[in-house]
Write a protein that binds this DNA or RNA. Sequence first.
DNA 1: AGCCTGACTCGGA
DNA 2: CTCCGAGCCAGGC
Length: 109
Amino acid sequence: VPGGPYERIYEAVRRIPRGSVATYGQVAELAGLPGRARQVGYALAALRGGDVPWHRVVNARGAVSPRSDPAFEALQRRLLRREGVALDRAGRVCLARHGLRPRRGPRRA
DNA sequence: AGCCTGACTCGGA
DNA sequence: CTCCGAGCCAGGC
């Protein structure tokens, strides 16, 4: 739905740099919807392809949120890895390294 | 209208 | 570390 409230969320997700990830809460804030992390998940669930890098969104623990179809979880991890995002043994993203950070660049030598 | 569900998060036990 | 409860919003019945 173009122009709908979801567009702001999608727009925020598009702003996540390649090789970085953001939490649902951060996306909500970037979209101007503080405290509505859940709505972000809902909006992303409504995605049907398109140019939204949904795989760069993870939960506050840095883990890929469980979803109805586990196949997508694997896909998300694969897409992240393809972008150079490191995942630990527990399958969690190193937020300290790839987490969206206003202060410190995501990419650091 | 109410009730249930879901890609969430936080604080407390 | 894990489990629970409360707050959160949109949709479907």
